[in-house]
Simulated scan of single mutants.
Amino acid sequence: MTPDDPQTLVSTGWLAAHLNDPDLRILDASWHMPDAGRDAKAEYDAAHIPGARFFDIDEISDLRSELPHMAPPVEKFMSRMRAMGVGDGHQVVVYDSSGLFSAPRVWWLFRLMGKRDVAVLDGGFPKWQREERETEDLPPMVRDRHMTVQRQAGLVKDVTQVAAASKLLDHEIIDARSPERFSGAVAEPRPGLRAGHIPNSRNLPYGNLLNADGTMKDAAAIKAALDAAGVDLSKPVITTCGSGITAAIINLALERVGHANHALYDGSWAEWGMFTDLKVAKG
């Protein structure tokens, strides 16, 4: 059993005990790969944890960018959260319908906006349902709530910063994609992208940080997975993946083991794999 921490990860039991807290806000941040054939919003409408609001990762993003679901401008994040009734003084719990997949992305996004009272639901909606806990299909009653944001620029990296880190070897770059995608053995799911990985990056498939039931491994097992991937935790870490979603699982895991010096490469392979002037490693 992983210890509950309202700033990183909480159990279904913790959430059930706090479900009626007046300053609790629950977000369903389910997101699926485009080829998964699943509609996250429709699934939310059919059943969700009582009081949960739907957080649309694709819409609450920087739609000016050609890259998928890049972090939104501060003003957009604030306005969307206000409309959802999420603001200052709230404890936020984020979950997804896969177990532990896209919710850490929204946890990271709140961190980027300077909000620390936010946790991911360990095991997500599948665990909640397996335990036969209460669900509903009604939208919550929402009241506007003011939100103050202080963007933490150090938590996100752009392509120039990642390229420098790849050359200078002064960061550990950790890629959450599958070994087949990392090595370049299979084609990328997004058309037009080269196969392979950022030179001098390490591969830690996000599934290696999870238990069979979709919960996150404990601190000792997380450290073992980092060690097995060859990660040197004396260095700051940059996480990456296909499009900046599952990379955040590594950020969450790093936070759980007390390694606070980490950032996420928001463009991830959707950006790096597109530009022919950036080097690609294989194998």
Rank of each mutant, 00 (worst) to 15 (best):
D56W: 03
S61V: 02
P3W: 12
T2K: 12
L27S: 14
Y206N: 01
G184T: 14
L278M: 08
T2F: 15
P6T: 14
T8G: 06
G258K: 07
F110A: 08
W31H: 06
P68T: 03
A219V: 11
K41R: 14
R38F: 13
H32K: 03
A29Y: 02
L226R: 13
G273S: 10
R194L: 04
R64N: 15
D62E: 06
P191I: 09
L254G: 09
A185P: 04
F125Y: 12
A42S: 07
V186P: 05
N203A: 15
R256K: 12
K41Q: 06
E188W: 07
H18P: 01
V231I: 15
G87Q: 10
A52G: 05
W107F: 12
M274V: 05
K157C: 02
L24F: 05
H171A: 00
G192T: 01
D21G: 07
A83L: 03
L278S: 06
V162T: 00
A195S: 14
S166G: 02
V118H: 09
F275I: 01
A187S: 15
L112N: 01
V237W: 05
S243M: 10
T246S: 01
A164Q: 14
I49F: 02
E66V: 03
L252I: 07
N211R: 14
H32T: 04
L168R: 15
G124P: 13
Y206I: 04
E172L: 07
A253G: 02
I249E: 13
A263T: 00
K41A: 08
P205K: 09
L169F: 02
I49M: 06
I174E: 00
S79C: 13
I60V: 15
T246I: 03
A195I: 08
S166H: 01
N20V: 10
V10W: 10
D39Q: 04
A221C: 06
D122V: 09
W107E: 10
T276A: 11
T160N: 05
A185G: 09
F77S: 10
E172Q: 15
P3K: 11
I60Y: 00
S102G: 15
I57H: 08
A103V: 05
D158L: 00
L15M: 02
R116F: 14
F125I: 09
K217W: 07
I174T: 01
C241L: 07
L24T: 04
A220C: 08
